[in-house]
Write a protein that binds this DNA or RNA. Structure first.
Lengths: 103, 103
DNA sequence: GTTTGCGTTGGAGTCCACTCCAAGTCCTAG
DNA sequence: CTAGGACTTGGAGTGGACTCCAACGCAAAC
């Protein structure tokens, strides 16, 4: 919840609808958007870049190409990260094998 | 360099040999250890856990089993991270495909 | 031999992304 | 109807991992 409020504050989420007494009512659209945000965040996209993406989305359909470019760049980053993790995972496996040997 | 000093300060690296004038002279052993540290760090191991590992290494050979356990737990974490990244990468690919469609 | 630039120190500062606080209101289960 | 939990606010605080600072010494290049 705090994180949601934080995201709302920095403009990652549009101002959310409220009940008469001021409580947030998230719509399905919001939940979907939050899912996207979570995906980007969890794959290491900095909050600032997510803001840029959110801005593009808010701007309307003429930013579709920019959004594609942004997501593609991010996908490349994710791929690189996965490759790096895979290589380092192997190094760790090697260490484990080494320790098993000397034990 | 600052990071190295920081690691030395918190005990991740043994006090490094110095020249007469106080400059650090890293040995091959250090470089290898630094490689290991970098690998663990880059795969998301928190500094605190790396300290625990460094401590085990310093303790001597009777900690080999503990080290294996620690590295295996970490390898599992890395595997999970990779699986998560792969799934989310696919979601991103789906988004891109969607945008390509509506463009 | 002088300039350029890397190394040294302890300690303070920075950055990112939250996360918590206090004081109050509202919603829901029993 | 009441108790307990969940929500509200602006703003301050946290945690992790560095990263920078000033003032200086030393080293390597020319």
């Amino acid at each position: 919840m705090d994180t949601l409020r934080y995201y709302e504050r920095i403009g990652l989420i549009d101002a959310v609808e409220r009940t008469a007494t001021g409580q947030r009512r998230f719509t399905d659209d919001h939940l979907e958007w939050l899912g996207t945000l979570k995906c980007l965040r969890d794959t290491g996209m900095p909050v600032e870049q997510m803001c840029r993406f959110a801005h593009l989305v808010r701007e309307g359909d003429h930013t579709i190409d920019d959004r594609i470019a942004l997501l593609e760049a991010h996908r490349v980053a994710v791929d690189e990260r996965m490759a790096d993790l895979a290589a380092k995972r192997d190094y760790i496996s090697g260490k484990i094998a080494y320790y098993r040997d000397v034990r």
